[in-house]
Structures are given as structure tokens and as C-alpha cells.
């Protein structure tokens, strides 16, 4: 499903060049749950953006479902991102001064899903992340952890085949992080592919495979034969 071969990413700022990824190759099959780990600045987010078709590699190829991403037009990529990929940004990236509900509904607007269904689904996923009591709060009136959970709900709402989560639990207390892992594992059971960046081993241990990055290179790729099981709780009422 996902196949990257010899991809590198070089950022140029003036004459300064940063090699964020160098010669990275791996394959991820449908239904896998992969954690990506590595120290800060090791290129995890850079890799994730490329996997999410939000950016192109400087060299190398990325084949997504048999198609070379570099060959697709911007509009085709937009469509793929909309239908296939759910992306949870490290920096949340919510629309400012916009309600929680509207933020979560946004991907469905571009998928031409009718309004009633949008509201229904968005509400459902916001309940799932424990924000049913914050539907009409503006994004800037939420705490960091709440914003992160809105971002998670938005990433899940299109029920994407591939979920890319960049530090999804970075701002969330461990008990709630556990619930998020429950949601992820539940999705994974339904054959959704999940790729998750984390720097916490506890969290990474929920995945079935852990890829380690260091200085833009893969430094480890091992199976996790005994992943931690998290409880999946749905329709929980509010949080504190």
C-alpha cells in the first residue's frame, strides 16, 4: 500500500541546506499499525508529510496504492488526501476563530457530504474524543489538549484508509492518551492502516511495528509481537 524507495528531503534556506531525510526506504502494508520513533529533529514529521502527500521528496519515489505521488496533479493529490488519508498534525492546524464542530466538518465539506450527515458524523467523532460538550467553542478557546483532540476527530471523521498521526498524544494526559490508543487499535482492527509518530515508548508499544529514525536515516525497524492493549470506550460523556 505504501512504498517509499530511497527518498531524501533537503530543505534549502538561502545557501543553507538541511538534509532532513536521507535515503529512506520501507514498505507498509494495508492494515498495519506502525509507530515511528526518534529524537527531535530526526525527520519524523518530514517523513510523515511526504507519506501524507502534503509535500514531495527531493529525490526517490513514493508509491501510494500503486501510484507514484510525484506524477499526480495538485488536484488529484487533494482528492487523495480528502478520501484516503486522515492527517493529525503535530501543530493541530485548526482554523482560527472557528467552532470545534466546523473544524471537524471541514474535510466533509470538500467531500460534498450533505450538511446533516456532516453534523452527525462530526458530533459522533467529537464525542469519541470526549469533546461533546465543546462543539460550539471556538478553536482558540480550547486548551492544548482539547485542540489536539479536535485535530484527532478531524483526522478520523472521513474514516480514512490511512491514518497519519504526528505526536497525537503529545499534549494529552496519559489516561486520555490511553483512550486515543483504544480508538486507534479499534480502527486498526477494521483494517485501517495507522502510522503514528511518538517519542514515548509506552505509546509506541501499542503499535505492531516500530520504525526508528536518526539523523534522517532509518536506524531500526522491528516488529512488536506483544502490543499493549488499550480499552476502546465510545460515547463517553464529556471530560473534566
Amino acid at each position: 500500500m505504501i512504498k517509499v524507495s530511497h527518498i531524501s528531503k533537503i530543505y534549502k534556506i538561502g545557501t543553507l541546506e538541511t538534509l532532513a531525510l536521507s535515503d529512506v526506504s520501507f514498505e507498509i502494508k494495508k492494515g498495519e499499525f506502525v509507530a515511528i520513533m526518534g529524537p527531535s529533529g530526526s525527520g519524523k514529521s518530514t517523513l510523515m508529510h511526504i507519506l501524507g502527500a502534503l509535500d514531495l521528496p527531493s529525490s526517490g519515489t513514493y508509491i501510494l496504492d500503486g501510484e507514484n505521488v510525484s506524477d499526480l496533479s495538485q488536484d488529484e493529490l487533494a482528492d487523495i488526501r480528502n478520501r484516503k488519508i486522515g492527517f493529525i498534525f503535530q501543530a493541530f492546524n485548526l482554523l482560527p476563530r472557528t467552532t470545534t464542530l466546523q473544524n471537524v466538518m471541514l474535510p466533509m465539506v470538500y467531500a460534498k457530504i450533505p450538511k446533516e450527515e456532516r453534523v452527525k458524523k462530526a458530533t459522533k467523532y467529537l464525542e469519541m474524543v470526549g469533546l461533546s460538550h465543546r462543539l460550539n467553542h471556538l478553536s482558540n478557546q480550547l486548551s492544548g489538549g482539547q485542540q489536539q483532540r479536535v485535530a484527532i476527530a478531524r483526522g478520523l471523521v472521513m474514516n480514512p484508509a490511512i491514518l497519519l498521526a504526528d505526536e497525537p498524544t503529545g499534549n494529552i494526559a496519559s489516561s486520555q492518551a490511553e483512550e486515543i490508543m483504544g480508538i486507534f487499535q479499534h480502527l486498526n482492527k477494521e483494517e485501517h492502516t495507522i502510522i503514528m509518530i511518538t517519542h514515548e515508548l509506552d505509546i509506541a508499544n501499542h503499535a505492531h511495528r516500530i520504525i526508528s529514525l536518526k539523523d534522517g536515516k532509518i536506524s531500526g525497524d522491528k516488529k512488536n509481537s506483544r502490543p499493549t492493549k488499550a480499552k476502546f470506550i465510545i460515547n463517553r460523556e464529556g471530560d473534566q
Binding site: 488536484d75 487533494a78 471541514l106 470538500y110 467531500a111
Partner: peptide, 19 residues
């Protein structure tokens, strides 16, 4: 700046250029 970010986000979530 804010608008450019907004465009980036909308694109990331699947908005086509003409939209």
C-alpha cells in the same frame, strides 16, 4: 500569512485549487 496558512490547511484537507 494567516490566509496562506488557511489555504494550506484547506488544501491539506482536500480542497481543490478552483474551490
Amino acid at each position: 500569512t494567516e490566509r496562506t496558512r488557511e489555504v494550506g490547511l484547506r488544501k491539506a484537507l482536500g480542497a481543490q485549487k478552483k474551490v
